[in-house]
Design a binder for these strands. Structure first.
Lengths: 187, 187
DNA sequence: TAGCACATGTAACTCGTTACATGATTTG
DNA sequence: CAAATCATGTAACGAGTTACATGTGCTA
């Protein structure tokens, strides 16, 4: 039973073969919205998956002192991934540093407290813009085809859009509440 | 500079003095909604905070083979907490195992996929009910008093309510989309 | 020619979980 | 009398981050 990262890599390889470097990049950009890993985790994990027979690789020529390996998922890997995907994940305990700060914000300087929430708002606003751009670009595929990955890409994107909108609304509410009490921020 | 857990403990102690055990409990029930830790983390962290002069303790008598210590925050601890609270947290990379599973759900059995999302929906439905109960109980305090903790308790609760409602709506949408394609689930 | 993207690995360290350990008091 | 709750600690392990390490090819 490999780690969650192993299944993240399998999920990417089930769509197309990639090198370790390409997997690392994918763990920043499309997958990074819900799972991340650094390259120092990726290479050992690929070796473990290969030892288990869930991925295989061919050596292609590339730059640098080492071999460049292009990995692909095997039939056994695909079966393992499909089985893992429907096992309910254990309820994960949330870790939200911002909420922890809000919990102690009554001790803080009111102007600085307002600035904290405003900054957070901007982060989520930027993230929402990125998701909206992705949504505009995405070809959704045939929505009738549940065996094609596009619909599930779209489902994860919808979750991101919804999440950012909800956080944004909460930030707006909180900033307004803080301003109502202490007067609007100085210019 | 202590860990985030240190500030979580300070945040609790700024409200009232507690024993390590009481802090551990608080890290499950009220704080657990946005930060968790097990008791094996709490005791060493309390020792570190004490060494730094941010908390102090008095020994009270209790059961068991060891001393029972009741910890309280010091003036220095309170200053450190107030300063930390307004420093913007580094944007945290999300880790959402369910979304990772959704990303590979096109490979899975459609009925099992539907069951996965339905189960997730029930989890969030139960969590929403807990939050709504808490909201009904909560005395919000004088909303004009930004130096009192009650308003900020309420703010974190609002975030929980909003979060669960958004996830619930997404689950409902996804289940409906999956059913529309494969026909309603067998009874 | 300096920096970046490509490309792959190892090592040290931190944070968090699980398991090990002990023992009193209360409740079913 | 068994189990849960109160109460506090240490140790082993696993997952993840940061830093170390090497080297090519392209572009500003």
């Amino acid at each position: 039973m490999p780690s969650t990262l192993g299944y993240a890599l399998l999920g990417l390889l089930a769509r197309k073969p990639r090198t370790g470097y390409e997997l690392t990049r994918a763990l920043r950009e499309p997958i990074g919205y819900f799972w991340t890993a650094s390259h120092s985790q990726v290479y050992p994990e690929l070796a473990r998956l290969e030892a288990r027979g869930w991925v295989c690789y061919e050596i292609i020529d590339g730059p640098g002192p080492r071999d460049t390996k292009r990995y692909a998922i095997t039939a056994a890997g695909r079966r393992a991934l499909a089985a893992w995907a429907v096992v309910p994940p254990r309820p994960e305990r949330s870790r939200n540093e911002l909420l922890l700060k809000v919990y102690s914000l009554w001790l803080a300087d009111p102007a600085a407290a307002r600035a904290l929430i405003t900054a957070e708002r901007e982060q989520h606003s930027a993230m929402l813009a990125r998701y909206e751009k992705l949504a505009a670009q995405s070809e959704r595929g045939d929505p009738a085809d549940l065996a094609a990955p596009q619909f599930f890409d779209y489902a994860t994107l919808c979750r991101g859009l919804s999440f950012e909108r909800h956080v944004l609304a909460w930030c707006d509410w909180l900033v307004a509440a803080l301003e109502r009490r202490t007067g609007p921020a100085a210019p």
